[in-house]
C-alpha cells in the first residue's frame, strides 16, 4: 500500500534520512524504534509529507505523493496521523474536532460537483441534442453531510466511552482522553493507514494503558498502522514487524520475535541492552 523508495530528507546540510526503502502492506502493524535523533519521527512525518522529502519516492495507493505536483491534501484524507502532543483543535469542542474534517471535505466535494454541473449545463447549451453531457449525480446535501458526520462522530465517541464529553472543550480532558479523541479524529476520515508519532510519550504512566488498549483494538480490526514508539512491550505484542532506525537508515527490520529475541545488528543489540 505504501512503497517507500530511497527516501531522503535533509534539513539544510544536515541529512536526517539517508535513503530508506520499505514496503508497507495492507493490515501491517509496523513499529519503528530507535534512539532519539535517529530520524524515526522524521521518517514518519515524511510519509504524509508533513516534512517534504528531499529525495526518493513514496508510492501511496499507486501515486507518488513525494511529487510536489500531487495535491497532497487529497491523499492525506486517507492517511490519519496521531501526534505526540495530541494537537486537538483547542477552539473546537470534542465532537467538532472529530466532525470538522469529514464535514469540510464533504462540503468541498459537494461544491466541486455543483460547480462541475453548472459548467456542464453551460456547455450543454452549445452542444447539439445528441451530444449533451450528463450531469454529475449529487446524492447528498449539506444537512445530510453534517448529520452523517455527527452520527459517525457520536458512534466513535461511544466506542471510546467519551460520549458524555462530546460538547466540552479539549482543555478539560485528561491526556489519555485527549489522545483517544485524537485517534478517533483520525478514524473519522476512514483512513487506509494511521501514522502514530510517539502517541504515549507525553502521557502520565497511568494513562498510557488506555491509549495502547485502543490501539490494540484497532490493530485487531485490521487497521494498517505505523507507530513510532518507545513502548517495547507494545511493539513486541502487537506489531507484525519492527524497524530499527539509527542515523537515518534502517538497520534492522524483522518480526518482533526475531527482532527482540535474536537481533543481528550490533547497534540494535546495544540499544536493546540499554532499554530492555
Amino acid at each position: 500500500m505504501i512503497d517507500v523508495i530511497n527516501l531522503q530528507k535533509s534539513f539544510g546540510s544536515n541529512q536526517v534520512l539517508k535513503g530508506i526503502d520499505i514496503k508497507i502492506e495492507k493490515g501491517d502493524i509496523m513499529c519503528v524504534i530507535g534512539p532519539s535523533g535517529s530520524g524515526k519521527s522524521t521518517f514518519l512525518r515524511c510519509l504524509n509529507c508533513m516534512e517534504d522529502p528531499t529525495g526518493g519516492q513514496i508510492i501511496f495507493n499507486g501515486v507518488d505523493i513525494a511529487d510536489f505536483k500531487v495535491d497532497i491534501n487529497i491523499h492525506r484524507r486517507h492517511m490519519g496521523m496521531v501526534f505526540q502532543h495530541f494537537n486537538l483543535f483547542n477552539n473546537k469542542t470534542v465532537i467538532q474536532n472529530i466532525m470538522l474534517a469529514p464535514v469540510l471535505v464533504g462540503l468541498q466535494d459537494l461544491k466541486k460537483a455543483k460547480r462541475q454541473n453548472s459548467f456542464i449545463k453551460l456547455t450543454n447549451l452549445l452542444r447539439s441534442s445528441k451530444m449533451k453531457k450528463d450531469l454529475v449525480a449529487i446524492t447528498t446535501s449539506k444537512a445530510e453531510i453534517k448529520q452523517q458526520a455527527k452520527e459517525n462522530a457520536m458512534a466513535l465517541l461511544n466506542r471510546i466511552g467519551l460520549a458524555d464529553k462530546a460538547d466540552v472543550y479539549p482543555s478539560t480532558l485528561s491526556g489519555g482522553q485527549k489522545q483517544r479523541v485524537a485517534i478517533v479524529r483520525a478514524l473519522a476520515m476512514n483512513p487506509d493507514v494511521i501514522l502514530f508519532d510517539e502517541p504515549t510519550s507525553a502521557l502520565d504512566p497511568e494513562m498510557v494503558g488506555e491509549v495502547l488498549d485502543l490501539m490494540k483494538q484497532l490493530a485487531k480490526e485490521g487497521m494498517t498502522m505505523i507507530i513510532v514508539t518507545h513502548e517495547m512491550g507494545f511493539a513486541r505484542e502487537v506489531a507484525n514487524r519492527v524497524l530499527f532506525i539509527d542515523d537515518g537508515q534502517i538497520l534492522e527490520s524483522a518480526p518482533p520475535a526475531e527482532f527482540f529475541g535474536n537481533p543481528k545488528n550490533p547497534r540494535l543489540k546495544e540499544f536493546l541492552s540499554k532499554v530492555l
Binding site: N73, R77, F83, N87, F89, L100, A101
Partner: peptide, 15 residues
C-alpha cells in the same frame, strides 16, 4: 498558536 494546530489540520487533509 502552537504549530501543532496547523499540523493537525493539514494531517486530516485540510488545505
Amino acid at each position: 498558536v502552537d504549530h501543532g494546530q496547523m499540523e493537525a489540520g493539514r494531517a486530516v487533509g485540510l488545505s
